[in-house]
Design a protein around this nucleic acid. Structure first.
Length: 564
RNA sequence: UGGGGCGUCGUCAAGCGGUAAGACACAAGAUUUUGGUUCUUGCAUCCGGAGGUUCGAAUCCUCCCGCCCCAGCCA
């Protein structure tokens, strides 16, 4: 533990922990846990929690467990467990041998329940679901006591063991805590501890037909694991008295403390598990790892790095304010990381053929190009140059707007890493009017410096040698939704999906060095953005590139302004 | 409506009675063989509102307003 860590609380949770150190509350121990339910893939919101919990443990020389909160077999599966394990590891965190499952505590939890029944503080209630809801009252009226509330301990014990034994139909009985049916906090109105549910569990199979509820299982799982600080999101604030109630019944000595923070929201996407499931199941995306998804798997496939995601989680902070973090902040973190680590390369997204009329036919030069202009240690690569090239369609304009620095009639422009060229003529498709070919001449004295005669050449455009280029597919991604806060819309939020969130460009050209680029590797295509070799759909020699994020584009802003 | 929580720049977020950090975004400029990077500069006389306490309040008190969460045998 470093000194700064002891003196620099950066958020209210760290303040609490450091406070606890000063009073020696948990014997100076920090034990946290990340407790996902394995019924979906984890997303950027979970990543915030993962970074918080594991980060706290690392900072204060404590431990963080990974615990599957698998108390409701419906929807839970091994696939999700495996994805969570993979994703948390990928994010850069390790729990050593402390991978736990709430389902491993089922027997202990059952015994705790028996204990609470014996204390006269839990009872088997035989009201049906509708009746329980009615009896619970509402915000304005207190609940009414269940007619089964005063069953004897013996009867409760008998009924509860028969619930476990499978003697009753689903829903016939539940075990309830006897707390306060009139409490102003609805959570405390004799909450349900166990329900009968004949659903096979992916780990315990058919061993159990009763399953503990979250409020009962979660706090006691924390206690069994000796968690000191149980960090969860704000919506569980109402449940904290119940958390404490259960723990007090059965645990003596040091008890875990629940602390709530605000869950993350990011603009132009949704982060609730229910909605992500809908996106997947209704095929609005190609799966949990669709690069447009805010899931860890999606971001990984898109090309985001764990470092970028971790940095984002650090930068957004931890507080209790409802929030909607700008998607541009995430993008900034991704660019910031990739700018340093991604080797540069050239690729053409919208090809336009260009012939250098005065360049000898059949001649090929190989230019030594820097892989990173600010970091020579990243080395160089050879890029072939020849008479016929492809350039970006956007880099030529027959009627250039003001401030346009690219190619146009009568103009000169620098070919990145190569010569200065001058426009000569163009060829159009007579039927469509589309420009099909450009003719230019090059200045042989300009490869490694400005024109010797002192002419100023302002623009620089990228290119690729037609003969040597690798044809590639490129996938462009945009925000999933058209509106900043789709999460706030309760109904028909799918109407706000961005129809242009995926654009596939089947015919693009990458420089030859990229032909066998490793799946998952990331490059900056100069002047365009960062791209990642798709790990699923690429084949050797035939890479598919995902655009991770575009470069900042100050010209795009100027150009857009010009149109208005 | 009963209970719980939250309101500081467009967005996150510091601030803990001594006179509004930082980041993103945005804007302007410099450097540049990426309109990228980097650098410089600007960007809340004001902290949901109104009163009060104090020499002094975003920070303490009172009232008011707004937003979020809770009435699953989900988590």
């Amino acid at each position: 533990m470093t000194q700064e860590n002891n003196t620099l609380a950066t958020d209210f949770i760290r303040e609490i922990i450091e406070d606890d150190f000063s009073t020696n509350k948990h014997a100076g121990r920090v034990a946290t846990r990340f407790p996902p339910e394995p019924n979906g893939y984890i997303h950027i919101g979970h990543a915030k929690s993962v970074c918080l919990n594991f980060g706290l443990a690392a900072q204060y020389s404590g431990t963080c467990n990974l615990r599957m909160d698998d108390t409701d077999p419906a929807g839970e599966s091994l696939e999700f467990v495996e994805s969570i394990i993979h994703d948390v590891h990928w994010l850069g965190f390790d729990w050593n041998d402390r991978l736990y499952y709430a389902s491993d505590y089922f027997e202990e939890l059952y015994q705790f329940a028996v204990q609470i029944i014996k204390m006269g503080k839990a009872y088997v209630c035989s009201l049906n679901a509708d009746e329980i809801r009615e009896y619970r009252g509402s915000f304005t009226e207190p609940g009414r006591e269940s007619p089964f509330r005063n069953r004897s301990v013996e009867e409760n014990l008998d009924l509860f063991s028969r619930m476990r034994a499978g003697e009753f139909e689903d829903g016939a009985h539940v075990l309830r805590a006897k707390i306060d049916i009139a409490s102003p906090n609805i959570v405390m109105r004799d909450p349900i501890m166990y329900r009968i549910k004949r659903e096979p569990h992916f780990r315990t199979g058919t061993n159990w037909v009763i399953y503990p509820m979250y409020d009962f299982a979660h706090c006691l799982s924390d206690a069994l694991e000796n968690i000191s600080h149980s960090i969860c999101t704000l919506e569980f604030e109402n449940n904290r008295p119940l958390y404490d109630w259960f723990v007090e019944q059965v645990i003596t000595g040091s008890r875990p403390r629940q602390i709530e923070f605000a869950r993350l929201n990011v603009s132009y996407t949704v982060l609730s598990k229910r909605r992500l499931i809908e996106l997947v199941e209704r095929n609005h995306v190609a799966g949990w790892d669709d690069p447009r998804m805010p899931t860890v798997a999606g971001m990984r496939r898109r090309g985001y790095t764990p470092e970028a995601i971790r940095n984002f989680c650090a930068v957004i902070g931890v507080a209790k304010n409802d929030n909607l973090v700008d998607a541009s902040l995430l993008e900034h973190c991704v660019r910031e990381d990739l700018n340093e680590r991604a080797p540069r390369a050239m690729g053409i997204l919208m090809p336009l053929k260009m012939v250098i009329d005065n360049y000898p036919e059949g001649k090929v030069e190989e230019f030594e190009c820097s892989n990173h202009p600010q970091n020579p240690a990243m080395g160089t690569r050879k890029v072939p140059f020849s008479r016929v090239l492809y350039i970006e369609r956007d880099d030529f304009d027959e009627n250039p707007p003001k401030k346009y620095k690219r190619l146009g009639p009568g103009r000169e422009v620098r070919l990145r890493n190569a010569y200065v060229i001058k426009y000569q003529s163009l060829v159009k498709d007579e039927r469509t009017g589309e420009i099909t070919e450009l003719h230019c001449t090059y200045d042989p004295d300009t490869h490694s410096g400005p024109p010797p005669d002192g002419r100023k050449v302002e623009g620089v455009i990228h290119w690729v040698s037609a003969e040597h280029a690798v044809p590639v597919e490129v996938r462009l991604y945009d925000r999933l939704f058209r509106i900043p806060d789709p999460g706030s819309i309760s109904e028909n939020y799918m109407e706000y999906l961005n129809p242009g969130s995926l654009e596939i460009l089947p015919v693009c050209y990458a420089e030859s060095s990229l032909k066998y680029a490793a799946p998952g590797s990331r490059y900056q295509f100069e002047r365009l953005g960062y791209f990642c070799v798709d790990a699923k759909d690429s084949a050797p020699g035939k890479p598919v590139f995902n655009r991770i994020v575009a470069l900042r584009d100050s010209w795009g802003k100027v150009a857009a302004r010009g149109k208005n």
